[in-house]
Design a protein around this nucleic acid. Structure first.
Length: 266
DNA sequence: AATGGGACCTGCGCGC
DNA sequence: TGCGCGCAGGTCCCAT
């Protein structure tokens, strides 16, 4: 799933695989994915430049180019970047020097590709909250103070904290023993500390296992991410909780499916 | 500030 | 087998 661990996995693997390569040709099969720029302009500005590095901001991927600009890619729900790709389901293809296409696939056409002069200054990046790894327990507790909203929808708010999505919100709350519908401001300093530690640990372990491949997500190599083996609650409604023997429940919070164990999460 | 709804799309699994 | 429905990881926008 393209949340922080998946996007970070894609970033690392792309950096290994395509850094230094020149983009020799671009084939656009779905121009609607290009946002704020015409197909013609995108192709003319990007063709002939080289990939100098790959960055990540929250769930946004940034492909830096030798011309000083950067391609931004948000995978949304079903986006994939694959190298080398076979072109079978590609929406956009980049032919690289040395051979092989970097393929951008996206079954649902939700993803967004842009071109920017200064990626750190685009609205999406400027509005992002801090990365979970950069927040101290004291700061995190202060961030929750006064917030009446439920903790799980708050974790999904990218302006609150960057990178957490529906899956890792559920898994982190389970690991911290906190009910997803708790008012954010009701968490004690100890509870918020447990939650921050659970978020950090869960995301890092997921990165170590190259992310979670439930449906569409794959690594640039085409391989699946392995972290699904360690999921405790996500998409496990009706299953037995491995910790207390209770039954995993699914509720709807903020319009999103929310999985948790009523026995373990208070 | 918070919550709820719908929108963007395609495709899967389910019940009938 | 066919059909309609609900659901899916993200984000934005509107209304209350």
């Amino acid at each position: 799933m393209p949340e922080l661990p998946e996007v970070e996995t894609v970033r690392r693997e792309l950096e290994e695989r395509v850094s230094g390569r020149k983009i020799e040709k671009i084939i656009v099969n779905a121009s609607r994915l290009l946002r704020g720029i015409s197909e013609k302009s995108f192709i003319s500005q990007v063709t002939g430049t080289s990939i100098t590095g790959v960055q990540r901001a929250g769930k946004l991927l940034i492909i830096e180019l030798s011309c000083g600009k950067a391609i931004t890619v948000h995978l949304k729900m079903t986006g994939q970047l694959v190298y080398p790709g076979d072109g079978k389901a590609s929406r956009v293809r980049f032919l690289l020097s040395g051979g092989g296409y970097l393929d951008f696939n996206d079954r649902r056409l939700f993803a967004e590709i842009g071109l920017t002069d200064d990626w750190r200054r685009i609205d999406f990046v400027e509005s992002l909250g801090p990365e979970p790894f950069d927040v101290s327990p004291a700061v995190f507790h202060a961030m929750l103070a006064g917030r009446k909203t439920k903790i799980k929808p708050l974790l999904l708010d990218q302006t609150f904290m960057a990178g957490i999505g529906n899956l890792y919100a559920a898994e982190s709350l389970f690991r911290a023993g906190i009910h997803p519908a708790r008012e954010a401001r009701s968490l004690s300093a100890q509870e918020s500390g447990l939650l921050l530690a659970a978020i950090s640990k869960t995301l890092k372990e997921a990165i170590r296992h190259n992310g979670s491949s439930l449906d569409q997500y794959v690594r640039p190599s085409g391989e699946k991410g392995d972290f699904v083996r360690f999921h405790k609650v996500y998409a496990k409604e009706g299953r037995i909780c491995g910790r207390c023997g209770g039954t995993i429940k699914r509720i709807s919070l903020g319009g999103r499916g929310t999985y948790f164990c009523p026995g373990c999460q208070k």
